[in-house]
Amino acid sequence: MTPLGLLSRLKLWRCASVGARVQVLGNVYVIGGGHIEIGDDVVFDGRVVPVELHVGPSAVLTVGHGCVLEGGVSLEAQERVELGPGCHLHAFSKVMDNHFHPVTGKRHERPPSRPVKLEAAVEVGQRAIVLPGAWLEARVKLGPGVVVARRVKSGQVLFTRGTS
């Protein structure tokens, strides 16, 4: 094992399983105490801003083989978040399966979680946000700043208004 590989494993010591040839550049911020599975050949690029893996107790986060997570990416799982193989999450994008606060009623009561699934080769643009209940099928591409909370069919490309 290379020194980088060893260092990467040390930085991911809180994860339940870490695949082969995983690279952690910079820092990864792992909190919550949940179950995290990292596949082979995953790259965490936290050189400028750390990558955040926030997995609550009894929650499961799965990062598939060959995924790339850039700086400032935040994955928040309170029940289940699943990233398929070959996903690419650009800088400051966020995937979450819980809103943490309800829009109406008592703001400090946590609403129920809705699992999030990203299938193979999904690309999430800079500052894009994947909200609870989203299901992005294979090869979906989200442009920068897109916010999505629904099922998106395979191969679709979504951009916000004003961009092309």
Partner: peptide, 23 residues
Amino acid sequence: MLAIGNPARLMSQRLCSSGGSHV
């Protein structure tokens, strides 16, 4: 009220909390 989108549009919080999704 609820502000949503870029640029933000206004909608009722009741409509949002009743379900639905957006892009």
